[in-house]
């Protein structure tokens, strides 16, 4: 099927195929093409590489002696860094071309009654996902999407861990609030 990702065509198409199905197939093809072009898609390694570049500037001797910074390598030597730059542009285009305006601050748990509480959760969440991803050696992209696509055992184990605590945490943050009646 041919279409241009502009407003009208997109909404017409999505009435026939749910977005998750249409883009799921496209993302699967994209992942395979990426393995053909240079390697599997990944994201989370970019965070410590970014830290490495900053430390090279402000504390070069520490950066030179830090085992992990040496292990992850330089920011612009990896294709992954450009994937992350692309994600920023892709998110912008997805919203803009379909004339969508994302909320600046989306409340997701009953306890998030003020933007400050939401930002606190977003910060803690951001900290834990990157810290956890680096323990495991990958995130949703590298371990789950690319890992399981390649049938890597590590991808299945990581996914099991993520959904075990992810489901428990999300349900608890909703349920506990209802139980207290607040």
């Amino acid at each position: 099927m041919s279409y241009s990702p502009s407003g009208g065509a997109a909404s017409e198409r999505q009435s026939r195929y749910p977005a998750w199905a249409f883009y799921g197939v496209l993302f699967g093809i994209l992942g395979a093409l990426s393995i053909l072009a240079w390697g599997p898609i990944g994201v989370s390694g970019t965070y410590p590489r970014f830290i490495g570049e900053i430390l090279e500037l402000v504390a070069p001797s520490y950066a030179g002696s830090n085992e992990y910074i040496q292990k992850v390598g330089h920011l612009f030597s990896k294709g992954e860094t450009f994937v992350v730059i692309g994600l920023l542009v892709g998110g912008f285009l997805g919203a803009r071309l379909n004339r969508e305006k994302a909320p600046a601050c989306e409340m997701i748990h009953p306890s998030e009654k003020t933007p400050a509480r939401r930002y606190r959760d977003a910060f803690i969440g951001g900290f834990l996902i990157v810290f956890g991803a680096r323990i495991a050696g990958g995130c949703t992209s590298g371990h789950i999407i690319s890992g399981i696509t390649q049938l890597s055992v590590s991808g299945f184990i990581f996914a099991a861990g993520v959904f075990a605590t992810g489901i428990f945490t999300a349900k608890t943050l909703k349920g506990r609030h209802q139980a207290t009646g607040a």
Partner: peptide, 21 residues
């Protein structure tokens, strides 16, 4: 490490609703 990392990641995923990408 992979399992522990996944468990830590899952808590962050549930709290914040975002993943690194």
């Amino acid at each position: 490490g992979v399992l522990l990392g996944g468990l830590v990641f899952g808590v962050g995923f549930g709290v914040g609703g975002y993943c690194p990408g």
